[in-house]
Structures are given as structure tokens and as C-alpha cells.
Nucleic acid binder design. Sequence first.
DNA 1: GAGCCAAACGGACCGCGGTCCGTTTTCATT
DNA 2: AATGAAAACGGACCGCGGTCCGTTTGGCTC
Lengths: 203, 203
Amino acid sequence: MPDPLLLPLADQPTAERADAARNREALLCAARRLVEEQGVAAVTMEAVAAAAGVGKGTVFRRFDSREGLMAAVLDFSETAWQASVISGPPPLGPGADPWDRLLAFGRSRLESTLVHADLIRAAGASGSRAAGAYSFAAMHVRHLLAALGVDGDLPILATALLAPLEIPILDQQLHSDGFDVERLLAGWEDLARRITGQVRAGR
Amino acid sequence: MPDPLLLPLADQPTAERADAARNREALLCAARRLVEEQGVAAVTMEAVAAAAGVGKGTVFRRFDSREGLMAAVLDFSETAWQASVISGPPPLGPGADPWDRLLAFGRSRLESTLVHADLIRAAGASGSRAAGAYSFAAMHVRHLLAALGVDGDLPILATALLAPLEIPILDQQLHSDGFDVERLLAGWEDLARRITGQVRAGR
DNA sequence: GAGCCAAACGGACCGCGGTCCGTTTTCATT
DNA sequence: AATGAAAACGGACCGCGGTCCGTTTGGCTC
């Protein structure tokens, strides 16, 4: 028996072998470096493998696909953002009233999405709605809607608020329609107002 | 001079050469056949070229990319749908009151999107928001909103209604969240009601 | 009809994502 | 320390999207 004291602790079905964990770290690290030094386009599976000093097959074993790797890189930045929603300063974090938190959420999410735009695009289907990222946002919005006393199908209404903040829609509006970020934001707040039934705030 | 009588007619800057037009037709036709006989995945640029009896380069010359080709194939079906919105029978077509037309639009658009789901995915960025498809839908919704007397930033509100009907969002909701189509539809109608300020209809 | 040029053609070629399989490493057991 | 099997590794290999460039063709002019 390896370590009786650790057995009862939740180490899940099967832990990761030492070399595997080491390589995962090295790869993730190499990928992040490549992204920030040469841009997403330069992040080739072979390049990452080489930079991490492992074989190409290993990259795929660890991350399944290029999209998977990108999602993993993205997840890194995403986690920090989630933390600021959960426990950062108000109005984004807890403390402010739900309506203000909702507005702050919209603005923050829009900005964050735009900052990581090409990473999200490269992460494809795993980009937004990856288990982590999307469902966290959906849950948060659902909670805020509940706190605002909104009634209806909250998961669906949450989606209605999140959908216009997704990359494909933003790309369309910013690049084809020629709307600017300010306008999108104002539009989103109006949408939030209509969905929540919030009366137009002061002034 | 080729044909003085035709000259004044708008033949645009430069017309397409005869062989080019012939090949475009053959390619589009071959692509459509491949799609319906073997599914989108089997539609390889080389396969299409071979099926149409032309070289691979020609496919790219005509459609730029695989996504472009897919968008062209999609456009074919899409046009029929647009026609039924413009001049089909009510409530989707003209004749019904705007609110009923909006509801019919939502349902119809959702169905149509799901039917062509994998084609749309394969068409990538050109899938939905291709010049034709997306902006037509946006325009139509804008008109209906205007007819309903909705005030606000109509182009933005129209997007808010269309975004939840886009493939990435639908995929998420249907496949990850496990919502069914009925629920999505009901949710969309509720959203439309909130956005337009429509009071809950009869009964 | 002959001649000319822009446009179109075709297929060899390239790079990258993804797979496969023979070899190496880890680690629990004794 | 020795052992054995599961897991991980690595890189040759494959298929497809996309490009390039030498060749062919269409259609206008004279």
C-alpha cells in the first residue's frame, strides 16, 4: 500500500503519474509563453511540444486536441476572473446589491472576453461554454436573477443575457455591424433591465 | 462590342467567364449531393473537385475556403427560408400582426437552424452571420420590433433576440445543459415578451 | 479567322492537426 | 533490489486545407 494515510483522502479514481504531471505543467507553461510572445496563431502543437522538450504525441495525450490545449491555457486566466467575481471587491464581488453586481458582471465579462478573444476562438467549442467557464457564469447570473426576484425559467434567462456576450456575436457586431463597445454595453444593460423588469435607475 | 443591347444592363464591374460559371454550378451541385448523400464530414475539397470533374485549385478559386463552400451550399437552403418569411403564408409571412409574426419567426428560425446545424458549423464564421443570412434575420426582427412600437436601440435588441438562436448557444443548451427544444422555445418567447414589453397574451 | 491577354485551370507541394504503435518509464508489490 | 503491468512517451505517418505556378482557355480586337 503506497500511503495508508492518504488513501481515504479523495484522490479520485486514478491519480496522474509523476512524469505525466511534470509534462502537463511544462506544456501548459510553454503554451502560455508562446501565446504571449508570438500570438495564438504561432501556437502549433509541434512548437509547443518542442518548446516543452517532449514528443508531439504527448501533447495530444495530455490535451486531446489543439482546442483542448487552448482551453487549458484559457482556463488559467479565466480562473483569476472567477475569483474576482466570487470574492473580489464590489460591485463585481459580493457586497453590492444584485442589480449593481449584474451590471458590473456584464461589463467585466465583456471586457474579459474581448481581451482573450483569439484564445477563445482558438479554443473553439471549448472556448466559452467549457464546463468551467460558461457554467460558472451561467450559475452566477442565475443567482443574481434570483436575488432580484425575477421569476421565469432562470437558466434560460441567464443564457439570454450571456449569449450576446459570446465571441461570435461580438465579432459580428464589432466588426461587421460597426457598433462600438460602448454601444454594446449600453445595449446589454438595457437588455438586463428588460429581462429583470428593473425600473430605470436614478436620474 | 459584344452586345450593345445588353451593355446598359447592370452586369457589374466584371462578369464571370463562361467556364468559370459552369464550374461554379458543377461544384455547388456536387457539394450539395455529397452533403445529402454522405453528410457534411465527407465533403472534402478534393472529393468535391473530383465529383465535379475539376482540379482542386478551382474549388478554392471559386469558394476561397471550405467554409466558403459550405456557406454557399447553405445559402441555397437559406434563400428558400427567406422567401417564406418575405412572401410566404402568415403568420411567418406578411399578413399576421407583428407579435404573431415574431413568435412564428422564432420558432421557424430555431427549427431551420437545427435542421442545418452541421452545415452551419462547417460554414464557421460564415455560417450564421454571413452577409446574407444573419443580416436578413436581423433586419426582419428590427422591422417587427419597430412595428410593435418597441423603443430603444433596435439593432442591438434584435441581436439580443437572435443570439440565443445561434448554433453555439443551442449546442450548449441542448447537449450540455440537457434542455429540450420545447423549453428553449418557451424561453425564447418569454424573452421576446420581456424585450418587447408585450403583455401576456389571451388566456 | 488570327492574335493577344486576362482569367481560369490543375495538380504538385507544404504545414499542421491528429493517429498509431513499438519503446520506455513509473510505481506497487515482494 | 527485482519484477511486471499499466501508463506514458515519441516520432513516423496520414489526410486534408490551402498555396503556387506553369499551362490552357475564353473572348475581345482587328
